[in-house]
Amino acid sequence: MKTRCAVVRMRLPGVESVDELGPRLSSHVETCLTCQAEAARYRTLRRHLGALASETIEAPDTLVSAVAAQIQHPAAEDRRGTMVRRAAIAASAAAGAVAAAGAGTIIVIGLRRTRSAA
């Protein structure tokens, strides 16, 4: 790769247009197909990122009511939110414990059967 191509490639991510590269590098890009292709990739990337601004990700239905509850009764909602989280974590942990206990029982029964057979 030519030196100028390498410099253009290195500097392109930091500029908004090829003109910002300065007259020497800009005129190089005008005559270099490799650099033009690279500049086009960054243009495409910026264009697609810019288009994301007009896309909306739908907020969950509960967001408005959660905020409304929070501003009406901040302390109570804080406690409730914490309790809900703790309950969810506890339920997850309990499910894990039940699964582990079940697996343990199966292993124990399996071992007893193996021993009695022997």
Binding site: A51, S54, E55, I57
Partner: peptide
């Protein structure tokens, strides 16, 4: 699950981006 209010992203580019 983006809303229908999509911008001008090409289908091939949207998801990978």
């Amino acid at each position: 699950s983006l809303s229908p209010e999509r911008g001008g992203l090409s289908a091939t580019m949207r998801e990978p981006l």
